[in-house]
Amino acid sequence: MLDAAVVWMNGRGNTQQWGTTPYSQKPGGVARIERYTTESDPWVAELAGTPVGAVVLDSGPAPQTPIAPAGEPERYVRLLISDRRFAGRGIGAALLAHAAEETRRAGVELLRVDCWAGGGGELVAFYERNGFDPTDPFLAGDWPGQVLARRVR
């Protein structure tokens, strides 16, 4: 799904968000996903037995992400991906709803995520439509990012 997402983004003219190299060929890409599936909380969405999306939750942002600590317990969306062949079916929204429920179930009130803020802010707007509020913009080199937060009770 990650490799296909790079192809899809590039086909739309977006070469900045994840670059042009397939995720599986990026240095550390495969190892990062392996860590996500063994050290974090991954969930895979299926449609008729076919994996169509995934969300990975953790207790905070990745150490290399230039984001201030939350100052309270949190769950953090480390990865949200959906198979673009199934776009428009609400897979990402369903996975975020599941992430909110898992956060609530853990007795935690704060769910955060960071994302690419370039390209007109479409990804930021997606998270806003799903109940997140922008908190802290950041730059990782020349990559514009945005932290968003959602209270779950």
Rank of each mutant, 00 (worst) to 15 (best):
V52L: 05
P63E: 15
T65H: 08
P66H: 06
G71I: 12
P51L: 05
R75A: 06
A62L: 10
G49I: 07
I67G: 00
R85Y: 09
G60T: 03
G53Q: 04
A70P: 03
P42F: 09
R78N: 10
V77K: 09
E72H: 11
P42D: 02
A68L: 15
E72K: 14
D58K: 06
G49M: 04
G88Q: 13
V55G: 00
P69F: 01
R85A: 15
D41L: 15
V55E: 01
D83V: 10
F86K: 10
A54N: 02
I81R: 04
D58S: 15
T50M: 07
Q64E: 15
Q64W: 14
A62F: 04
Q64R: 10
G88V: 13
P42H: 06
W43Y: 10
Y76M: 02
I67R: 07
S82N: 12
R85V: 10
P51F: 04
A87M: 10
P66S: 05
A87S: 15
R78S: 13
A54V: 13
L80F: 06
R75N: 14
D41P: 00
V77H: 07
R84Y: 13
G49R: 02
P51G: 06
A70T: 10
R75S: 12
P61G: 01
P63L: 09
L79V: 07
S59F: 05
E72Q: 15
A54G: 10
S59P: 00
I67S: 02
L80S: 06
R84L: 08
P66D: 08
A87L: 12
A70L: 08
E74A: 04
V52Y: 05
G88C: 12
R78P: 00
